[in-house]
Amino acid sequence: MPEPANDSSFFRTPIAIVLAWLIPGLGHIYLGDRRRGGILCATVTLTFLIGIAIGGVTVVSPVKPSQNVVSRTGAPVMTSSWWFFAQALNGSYAVVTYQINKAVTDGNPTDPRYYLAWPSGDVGSVYTGIAGLLNLLIILDVLVRASGTQVPLPKTDPSGSPHHPQIRS
């Protein structure tokens, strides 16, 4: 029979999830897996920054022009606002970048002066969106680790007999 959760274990999972959303990898660090959290943080942060470097801060925006317009470079705009849902999973990164985007575009991202260039805008959207989707995987892993419901895969030792490690609690 499971022991009743005290306050600290009750808040442990939601705090870890919020931290993982705010900064990728911080949830793992909060749970004590510092090296794993550091690797995840560096990887997702670098992916997001590469996306911003390629496409500029305007790639993180829920408002995108339609396909019938052209960018300031004259190339067609082919971005989709659906990527913003994935980008928002980057937490604080997406919030800060979107605030910079609003400051740069004077709060009017549909102004033709700030239309995304093609293909840089699309590539930037994909990179930042994939970074967000990777962070979703990280958040789900934090949820599993924090709640202690991870079921480890059975390992086979050199003698050939299956070895079933204990489930962590």
């Binding site: 690797i39 997702v44 992916t47 470097a53």
Partner: peptide, 28 residues
């Protein structure tokens, strides 16, 4: 660099497949 998009031409777009795949691999 972070405000304006960079100019991508030709094969550069195909090469950009490598960093994103590496990120996905490392996280997984």
């Amino acid at each position: 660099l972070f405000l304006d998009p960079i100019t991508l031409t030709g094969f550069q777009r195909a090469l950009l497949l490598i960093p994103i795949c590496l990120s996905i691999s490392i996280v997984y």
